[in-house]
C-alpha cells in the first residue's frame, strides 16, 4: 500500500512513520504534490503553532491541494485543527474541510492538556473494534468545537470534538502513533478504509 505522510516541516513525523512500520507499512514522507495525489492513503500530521504551520502549507501550495484529495486522508493533532474553518491560535484561517472552529482551553483547566483521556460517542469505521471510553494520548492547548462532523468526543473543560469525519477526510485530535494498542488499531482501521 502506498501511504504518504505530508512533510511540510511541522513537527515530529518520524513517530507516525515508525508506528506505520510496526504495522508493516513503509510510509513515504513527502511534500511533492504529485506523490501526495497518487497515494492510496494520506496522513496529514502537525505539531506546533497553527499560523506558522498554515504559512508553510501556503508556501508549498498544499493548502489548495489537500481539500481536493480523493483518497482517505487522516489529519492528526494540529493537522486535524488546520482542516477546520478557523483557529483562535494565531487567528488562523484553516482549510475549511470540517465545518467547525478551534478554540483555546480556558484557565479552569491546566493547559496544555497532556496525557491519556477517553474517547466516547464513537461513530465511524475508523473506530472498528475500539471500545467506547478507550484511552488515547492527547497533547494540545486548543480544541475543535462540537459539530455535525464529530465522530468522537472527549471531555476536558467541556465536551469537545476529539475526532471528525467528512467524506474521505478524517481528523483526530489525539496521537494514535503514541496511543499504545488502541492507537495502533485506529491506524490499522485507517489503512483498511
Amino acid at each position: 500500500m502506498n501511504v504518504v505522510i505530508i512533510d511540510y516541516g511541522a513537527g515530529n513525523i518520524k513517530s507516525i512513520q515508525f508506528a506505520l512500520k510496526r504495522l508493516g507499512v513503509d510510509a513515504l514522507l513527502s511534500s511533492d504534490v504529485n506523490i501526495i495525489k497518487a497515494a492510496d492513503k494520506v496522513i496529514f500530521p502537525g505539531v506546533g503553532e497553527a499560523s506558522s504551520a498554515m504559512k508553510k502549507l501556503k508556501e508549498s501550495g498544499l493548502d489548495t491541494i489537500i481539500p481536493k484529495l480523493q483518497q482517505p486522508v487522516l489529519g492528526i493533532c494540529l493537522g486535524m485543527q488546520l482542516m477546520c474553518n478557523y483557529s483562535e491560535e494565531g487567528k488562523t484561517e484553516g482549510l475549511g474541510i470540517f465545518n467547525t472552529d478551534v478554540k483555546q482551553f480556558n484557565n479552569t483547566v491546566k493547559v496544555p492538556q497532556m496525557g491519556w483521556n477517553t474517547i466516547s460517542n464513537l461513530k465511524s469505521s475508523l473506530f472498528d473494534t475500539i471500545i467506547d471510553n478507550d484511552f488515547m494520548y492527547m497533547v494540545h492547548s486548543y480544541y475543535a468545537e462540537p459539530c455535525d462532523e464529530m465522530i468522537a468526543t472527549t471531555n476536558y473543560q467541556l465536551d469537545y470534538a476529539s475526532a471528525l469525519q467528512k467524506d474521505n477526510f478524517y481528523g483526530v485530535q489525539f496521537h494514535p502513533e503514541k496511543s499504545s494498542k488502541a492507537g495502533e488499531q485506529l491506524l490499522k482501521n485507517f489503512l483498511g478504509l
Partner: peptide, 28 residues
C-alpha cells in the same frame, strides 16, 4: 521505532540544535 507510548529525553541538553536532533530522532 519500537515503543508505542510517549517519551521524554533529558540530561545535558543546552541548545536548540540538540533539541532539534532529539525531536527529529523521535523523542516526544
Amino acid at each position: 521505532e519500537q515503543v508505542n507510548i510517549p517519551f521524554t529525553v533529558g540530561g545535558g541538553i543546552s541548545s536548540v540544535k540538540h533539541v532539534d536532533a532529539l525531536l527529529q530522532s523521535g523523542a516526544d
